[in-house]
């Protein structure tokens, strides 16, 4: 029989990564975690939300988040030795990267890819953000490609432009892993399709159970928490809801842009 309740853990450390971006570290209690899987983070008496894991060490894990709504404000305000609950890991993660895998992270999306970037040649990773002060891991992965929308760090423009360049070059590329805004992932899928490359993306939806029971995170015919959050692009191509609709807390289906705005306040 299984147990799926939050295990309470002391916060070992809380670090500022960039503007409004923090990482909390707790003891590593995850059994067989695969990067791309997620955990449910509980702040007692506040709420519980799904997060990726950005630091996967033998003794501790790190969870990187952007301070946006009520929950992440509380999380950023927790102190060392404060208690949070963790349950998981849940869902399907990314496959094992090989030496010719390209990893692309946009905004906070790079956090769930970071344990994979640790494993690969850093120059095969592309990390993008709106601006330098919101860019994650520029000291952690010095040899990665960086892009900013406003050109304040790295190349001015989007991660997809670097990807196009890499796929057009004669270098061998086996597959592409990607996590970021759905509009960006959708574009990455198109580019990979054009170049006939395998592509895996990681989806985000509002979740309740996290283990495939409640139906809250449905995206078309996909149960995101259980059959994802990582999907091979061919499994979401033609999905009428991917990059178009998502469900808010009541279960109401709204355009992704409205969903993102709502999530920012939650």
């Amino acid at each position: 029989m299984r147990d799926d309740y939050p295990m309470s853990l002391e916060i070992l450390e809380i670090e500022k990564e960039a503007k409004d971006l923090f990482t909390i570290f707790v003891k590593n209690t995850l059994d067989g975690f695969v990067p791309g899987q997620f955990v449910m983070v509980w702040i007692p008496s506040v709420d519980e939300k799904p997060f990726g894991v950005s630091y996967l060490e033998k003794d501790r894990i790190g969870i990187t988040f952007e301070v946006k709504g009520k929950f992440t404000k509380k999380l950023a305000g927790t102190k060392k030795a404060g208690i949070i609950g963790i349950r998981g890991p849940y869902g399907i993660g990314f496959p094992d990267p090989d030496s010719s895998t390209i990893v692309i992270g946009g905004g906070c999306g790079v956090s769930s890819l970071a344990p994979l970037i640790e494993k690969i040649k850093k120059s095969n990773s592309i990390i993008g953000a709106r601006s330098k002060d919101m860019l994650l891991f520029r000291n952690r992965f010095k040899d990665a490609h960086f892009t900013t929308d406003d050109g304040t760090f790295g190349k001015k423009g989007f991660v997809t432009e670097i990807l196009e360049g890499k796929l057009s070059a004669p270098d061998k590329v086996s597959q592409v892993f990607c996590c970021g805004p759905e509009i960006m992932m959708s574009r990455v899928i198109e580019i990979c399709k054009k170049h006939r490359k395998k592509c895996f993306i990681s989806m985000e939806r509002y979740m309740k159970c996290g283990f495939g029971v409640c139906g809250q995170c449905m995206c078309g015919d996909k149960v995101v928490c259980k059959e994802g959050p990582v999907f091979e692009s061919k499994d979401v191509e033609g999905n009428p809801e991917f990059n178009h609709f998502a469900r808010i807390k009541s279960g109401k289906k709204v355009p992704v842009s409205d969903y993102v705005r709502w999530r920012g306040c939650e």
């Binding site: 506040v46 349950r87 309740k208 009541s250 109401k252 289906k253």
Partner: peptide, 30 residues
């Protein structure tokens, strides 16, 4: 439309499963 309760709304201890979702639903029009 009903938002239902905040998370955690579900968890399990072995043979016991508990939930308090609070009838979240989009309402009859949706």
């Amino acid at each position: 439309e009903r938002l239902g309760h905040n998370n955690p709304t579900m968890f399990s201890f072995g043979d016991v499963f508990m939930n308090a979702v609070g009838y979240s639903n989009p309402g009859m029009i949706e």
